[in-house]
Design a protein around this nucleic acid. Structure first.
Length: 480
DNA sequence: TTTTGAGTTGTTCGA
DNA sequence: GTCGAACAACTCAAA
């Protein structure tokens, strides 16, 4: 502990704000409640090796930059972020005892692991100290958007209707407590980057609201341009509150409405996981856990390393490996490819993306993977299989995105880059591409793989009542 | 309790 | 090239 704080702290009641996924001071319920209640605040962050093990290099690096930015923000009001390393279940109670704190304020997470950890911390606190949890990550807290029977709506549209009607609970107003300036291990942090912290988050929000938002419906699926808010990382670390984003966007016009709707999807997946923790590794409908996934380590590696022979898939996976980022549309395409084209268990892909993405989040990632796999909530026809070539031509019409991440195909002109195997020898030769040498042949035939996936899903489905003699048939054809 | 209409970031086929 | 229907059969929400 550094000098000056001792004197300030000695006269007053001490509270700890344990920052986790809420690395901001503005619009932060735990921070506001703590500064209103205590005389002295200790802002604490714990680097937990067990959590860091599950983060890829891109997220770890950004995590440290975000901590540095929060530390900068605290310095501006005379404080420092107290950084500790270790298991929070021992570290947090030890700090409470050392500082004589009476409460630990935090914003809760929606995963079972997060709740278990917080409960273990609470149980280990010295007598007289307590954990005070709030919700600060979502627009609406879990449990606040329910159907008439008290459950989380299982189709998005029903959730969306109620979400729009719901009123926010007011968050507490911050007080004027003193903030301590003990940095702990914080002096080892790398400098904050320009895009980190609340400053970076608000800059990204402003840039989005100054232009792209008003073409959001048409632009958001364009993977070759910056047409989205790029706020997922800021929302992941909580450097901006989702409520601020909703307020700033307003609701004027269908484009802004479409953008806000995406934040409702985010809330929906969090609400679902909070209510159904088993969604992390089980299909919402049990029969869909019976799908016979293929054991195909080579296929998985080709997918992971970006050499499936499908350019949009490979571009996305290489971008992910290099940067920890991926457009939402591309996430759907690569997920559909693994699950439907390769018929590999969605859980394997989910784990990989969750680790590699900077914004990798259990609730969001699981929700989206289950949506693509058709195993989760929402009405998804099981025959929905994304065609990687169609998706590429539609959302990357000039092939710009592919050429950026798959340099060996740069010589191929325009949208032809999405299906190099369809080109004639002369075109390929002119572009300096020999399939099988410079770039892989497709590892599966999409049309055949699509039929295979539909068949596997059909077999897993329980027979309809009164129809238990039906044999698994080939894909139905209309007009037959 | 029963009924009814809707779901859904898609693809494919044929007119 | 564009358009609409079909895909398959549920489950869900709300009346």
């Amino acid at each position: 502990m550094t000098r000056s704080t001792e004197g300030r702290a000695s006269t007053g009641d001490v509270g700890i704000v344990w920052f986790r996924r809420d690395l901001r001071l503005e619009d932060n319920p735990a921070w506001a409640a703590a500064t209103a209640r205590h005389d002295v605040i200790v802002p604490l962050h714990v680097l937990d090796p067990a959590v860091l093990r599950w983060a890829g290099p891109a997220r770890r690096e950004r995590h440290l930059a975000e901590l540095a930015a929060l530390d900068d923000e605290l310095r501006r009001i005379g404080g420092r972020l107290l950084l500790r390393r270790g298991d929070p279940v021992t570290v947090v109670p030890a700090e409470v005892a050392r500082l004589g704190a009476t409460a630990v304020h935090l914003n809760r997470g929606v995963t079972p692991a997060s709740d278990r950890r917080d409960a273990a911390v609470a149980a280990a606190l010295p007598a007289g100290a307590e954990v005070l949890g709030r919700w600060g990550d979502l627009v609406l807290a879990p449990g606040s958007v329910l159907t008439a029977d008290g459950s989380v709506p299982k189709v998005f549209t029903a959730f969306w209707k109620r979400w729009q009607r719901a009123r926010w609970d007011e968050w507490p107003e911050p007080g004027d407590a003193l903030v301590t300036d003990d940095a702990g291990d914080g002096d080892d942090l790398p400098p904050a980057t320009a895009e980190a912290g609340s400053t970076g988050a608000h800059a990204a929000l402003t840039a989005f609201l100054d232009g792209p938002v008003d073409d959001y419906r048409a632009g958001r699926d364009r993977i070759d341009r910056p047409a989205t808010s790029e706020l997922s990382v800021a929302l992941h670390f909580g450097t901006i509150s989702a409520r601020r984003v909703v307020e700033a966007a307003g609701s004027a016009g269908a484009d802004r409405q479409a953008f806000i709707r995406q934040l409702a999807w985010r809330d929906w997946y969090a609400h679902l996981l909070a209510a159904h923790p088993q969604l992390v590794d089980h299909a919402m409908r049990p029969e869909l856990d019976r799908i016979e996934w293929r054991h195909d380590p080579d296929g998985f590696e080709a997918w992971r390393d970006g050499r499936t022979g499908y350019p949009i898939v490979d571009a996305g996976m290489r971008q992910l490996a290099e940067t920890g980022r991926m457009h939402n549309r591309v996430r759907m395409v690569v997920a559909s490819f693994l699950v439907k084209d390769l018929l590999i268990d969605w859980r394997l892909g989910e784990r990989h993306l969750r680790r590699a993405l900077i914004d990798g989040d259990v609730a969001q990632n699981v929700g989206n993977w289950q949506w693509v796999a058709g195993t989760g909530p929402d009405a998804v026809p099981y025959f929905r299989v994304l065609n990687p070539v169609t998706q590429g031509r539609r959302h990357d019409p000039d092939g710009t995105f592919v050429r950026r991440w798959v340099p060996e195909l740069r010589g191929l002109p325009g949208p032809d880059v999405h299906a190099p195997w369809e080109l004639d020898e002369a075109t390929l030769r002119a572009a300096g591409v020999e399939l099988g040498r410079d770039y892989p042949h497709p590892i599966v035939d999409h049309a055949a793989a699509r039929e295979r996936a539909i068949g596997a899903y059909r077999v897993a489905r329980p027979p309809a009542a009164g129809d238990d003699t039906r044999l698994p048939a080939g894909p139905a054809r209309r007009g037959s």
